[in-house]
Design a protein around this nucleic acid. Structure first.
Lengths: 145, 145
DNA sequence: TTACTTGTAACAGAAATGATTACATGTAAT
DNA sequence: ATTACATGTAATCATTTCTGTTACAAGTAA
């Protein structure tokens, strides 16, 4: 089981919008870079738009960043594309037996632990910005020559 | 999307084995506490056994802990029940376009970031032991009276 | 031999993902 | 206003994963 690739695609889109900002980034063009269907891109771009990360307008070709590179963290993207509902990274078995000491207390015992782990994950994502990713992409490109 | 509840169930099983260690913990009994099917319990218990966390024998009723409480971390359980393949917590879109600057570098750029986040998650799980969970369960029980 | 348990495989329904198609809606240029 | 083209969105489909369920072989002890 993996967290939906929407997250990775979201990062891809935002990086592309920056690196290719002088041209018109249609869903079709972005789709060709990601290697998927334009409708998939439009859906994800819509989510990024709702989160205030991207500017797009119906009927008008092209998307662009709505915020500064350095002010968009991967956590923002993660939250934007809804890959994990809040406090639900870890699935919990429902209805453990209330007649059992363990059954009636396990959820309350585990919950804060799962929350802490989830928070650690999000904190890690919050320290990286799209600017970092873009920089890295350009560096990897250089080092290929 | 959530990580399989096998993880939570695994924690439940191990806690139960400790708290109920004076009795015989058959898959049927455990299943009644978790509120699921015995076959599900046997499958998960089998995984915990393979990881050296639990003792079970074919034909002989009951399971028990194979290690000390304080030496079983939630990370051990997490790894044991195979809810997430190593380095695959975050799904990645396959085959981005190699003819695109972003497409051909995005994976290498994102990979270490995803790994770091995954590591942060695992580190958080590594700091908690089954002993902590058991203690918490007993405390929650007390505070209910 | 009997009674019971674990180990496993097979199968089914439910939910999520990603791709695809289709089309309504919106915009701008002619 | 008409035309050309892009976005927004819903519907559908194949695939995968999960959880539960059933069934049964194999192991153990009385």
């Amino acid at each position: 089981m993996s967290i939906s690739s929407r997250f990775a695609v979201g990062i891809h889109i935002l990086s592309l919008l920056e690196i290719n900002k002088d041209k018109v980034n249609t869903s079709e063009f972005i789709a060709s870079s990601v290697n998927t269907n334009p409708a998939v891109i439009r859906k994800i771009t819509g989510m990024l738009k709702n989160a205030g990360l991207v500017k797009v307008r119906p009927g008008v070709a092209g998307a662009s960043l709505a915020k500064e590179l350095t002010h968009i963290t991967l956590l923002d993207v993660y939250k934007a594309v809804n890959v994990v509902q809040d406090k639900e990274l870890f699935g919990m078995h429902e209805n453990p037996n209330p007649d059992c000491l363990v059954g009636r207390n396990i959820q309350k015992a585990i919950d804060p632990i799962f929350s802490a782990a989830e928070l650690a994950l999000e904190k890690a994502l919050g320290t990286v910005t799209i600017a970092d990713v873009v920089k890295d992409i350009l560096e990897k490109e250089k080092s290929m020559s």
